[in-house]
């Protein structure tokens, strides 16, 4: 089998420390082209923040990373390997569902609407995937879940159902649920957009703590302040292409492109 990181790295010129590597990523729905050739490099352990107006394709790109959406063109490697395919003899073979699931389990994802399993308690939400996908023993999964809940400051909500929690608490549980799979990368799809303003801070604080642990993060967000403080690179997308990218502090202080300037003046 050749979808090994080392072969791909040599063949596609992937940097050694690359966690997410995208070249010419395209995605269309029928005749509507949402992504028109996106190149991104996210080194391991870094935080990339993607901003842009709604409809710019930033969420679609995020969903391409863990293969929730299939690409219509280009390549996308996570930790040097394709997520949904095996590369053999210049052909990309779609992998089986079970294999895809195992690879996807290494990429955590957070959603705007939290999407906690509403029929399960907090601890059941955290244990579900480790126990039923990774086949971790129940006792061990429970111990790890409790540890994660204390890290996000929710040790007192273990047996609550999601609807009994505030939005901020739900998103923190969702982060703990994603971390329970010990992912290599965490993808955040506007994690604070559905929250009341006073709850945004607690979620950003948890994300800040995560960033310090050295996990790779790709964050689609409208929180420019967060991007400036935590982001290692800032990417501005508009109309399916990357308009500008760079160091967050420099880019926010002095955007080069007119479109970036316009967008930043609206959200700052």
């Amino acid at each position: 089998m050749s979808n090994t990181p080392s072969e791909n790295r040599a063949r596609f010129g992937v940097p050694a420390d690359s966690m997410v590597f995208a070249r010419g990523v395209r995605k269309s729905y029928g005749t509507l082209e949402v992504l028109k050739g996106v190149d991104i490099d996210v080194p391991a352990g870094s935080v990339a923040c993607i901003i842009g107006p709604s409809g710019s394709g930033k969420s679609t790109f995020l969903r391409c990373i863990n293969h929730l959406e299939k690409l219509t063109g280009g390549i996308l490697l996570v930790d040097g390997a394709f997520v949904g395919y095996d590369l053999r003899d210049d052909r990309l073979y779609e992998v089986k569902d079970d294999e895809l699931c195992q690879r996807r389990a290494e990429i955590g994802m957070l959603f705007q609407s939290f999407n906690l399993f509403s029929h399960m308690t907090v601890i059941e939400n955290l244990m579900e995937a480790p126990v039923h996908v990774r086949h971790v023993p129940v006792d061990q999964a429970k111990a790890e879940a409790l540890e994660l809940l204390s890290r996000v400051g929710l040790s007192d909500k273990v047996d609550r159902y999601p609807r009994e929690l505030s939005g901020g608490q739900q998103q923190r549980v969702a982060i703990a649920r994603a971390m329970a799979m010990k992912p290599k990368v965490l993808l955040f799809d506007e994690p604070t957009s559905a929250l009341d303003p006073e709850l945004v801070g607690e979620v950003l604080q948890v994300m800040r703590d995560l960033a310090e642990t050295g996990i790779t993060m790709v964050v689609v967000t409208h929180e420019i302040g967060f991007a400036r403080e935590i982001g290692d690179q800032l990417i501005f997308m508009d109309d399916g292409v990357i308009v500008e990218r760079g160091n967050p502090r420099e880019m926010i202080a002095d955007p080069q492109s007119l479109r970036t300037k316009e967008f930043l003046s609206k959200v700052l």
């Binding site: 929730l68 996807r104 290494e106 994802m109 999407n115 649920r177």
Partner: peptide, 27 residues
């Protein structure tokens, strides 16, 4: 059942049969 439920399950790496039997059908 809201589509976000099965989407979150897919993102966690749950296979289709698990999503049906453990997430969608119970709800």
């Amino acid at each position: 059942v809201p589509s976000g439920q099965s989407e979150a399950a897919r993102a966690l790496g749950m296979p289709y049969r698990n999503i049906l039997t453990r997430i969608v059908l119970p709800q």
